[in-house]
Design a protein around this nucleic acid. Structure first.
Length: 103
DNA sequence: AACATGACCATTA
DNA sequence: GTAATGGCCATGT
């Protein structure tokens, strides 16, 4: 098993998140067979450049968008989610109770 | 090989 | 509600 396989597994799980739903980093890690490696999910997405992967549907455990080093990333993520029907509350957070993906 | 960094999470106080 | 701590591991210097 090489590291690329691990990344592909993560991308596969993220790609399987249905529109209008979100998943947390820890959740993606678990579904990818990597319990406790939530940080790798974040890292995998940070180096991701594949537009076919809906990375914007992945948020942190607080239901908030994680700030990133890139430029417009966090801003674009919010716009994309709202475009899919996901609503944010006054605190800029998502109601996981309503939108979290339950496979 | 060692060290620092990073789109994180859960627990504890 | 906030703050600090430990665990996780790929990448680049």
């Amino acid at each position: 098993m090489s590291t690329s396989d691990t990344y592909r597994k993560i991308y596969a799980v993220v790609s399987s998140i249905p529109p209008g739903c979100v998943a947390t980093y820890g959740q993606v890690a678990r579904l990818a067979g990597l319990p406790g490696r939530a940080r790798l999910v974040g890292y995998a997405l940070s180096v991701l450049a594949d537009k076919s992967v809906p990375w914007h549907r992945v948020v942190n455990a607080k239901g908030e968008i994680s700030p990133r080093s890139g430029g417009d990333g966090d801003f674009v993520q919010r716009l994309r989610l709202e475009s899919e029907g996901v609503r944010f509350d006054s605190h800029g957070r998502i109601s996981l109770k309503l939108y979290q993906w339950l496979p």
